[in-house]
Amino acid sequence: MADRYAHYDVLDKRDTPSWNDKTRQVIDARMSLREADAGIGEARLATLRRLVSRIAPQPERHAPANTVALLAHKIVKDEGEGFRPATLPRLRECWLRGLDAIEAEAQARHGRAFAGLDAERADALLRGIEAGETQASDWIALPARDFWNWRVIPDIVSMHWSHPSLWSAMGFGGPASPRGYVRLDVNRRDPWEAEEHGDG
């Protein structure tokens, strides 16, 4: 798809009335997180990197998001939303076991690391987890579909679309406080909103 907002960057508004101090502080801290500092271990980090790259690709014409780092920190700090289905353990344990299970699944299917699978094989493996059709014994105690629906998808997607690059790519206005918006009507935009360029 042609990038409709290639020339738009939410971060250009960082020092305008659209961002308050608290927002600057929160976003700066988020963008500074690094994968290596999370302490999740190199093997699991490699699995996580490959997983994130398949579920949540980077936008083509905006700076890459540090989604892997955000998720790795969330896992290590066990920052769940609190609720979880009876079939799954808490966030950190769930993710660590889940990453190991994905790796075991790759070994069972292809005899090699998940991080080394090509896109086609990696996606086929992930579709298996999504459908609950798996081979590795790790999934007996960690139901694959529940792991997918309650952890993999919401957690990766939440981290990815918490990054300003993804906001820019979709033409989202981004942070808006104290300045909000004036023009609310169909096909109207304020000067501080993204201008859309046609796909043609």
Partner: peptide, 12 residues
């Protein structure tokens, strides 16, 4: 998920 999700998000 994947490319499909990214493309759909860009039509938000």
């Amino acid at each position: 998920w994947g490319r499909e999700l990214l493309d759909e998000m860009e039509r938000a």
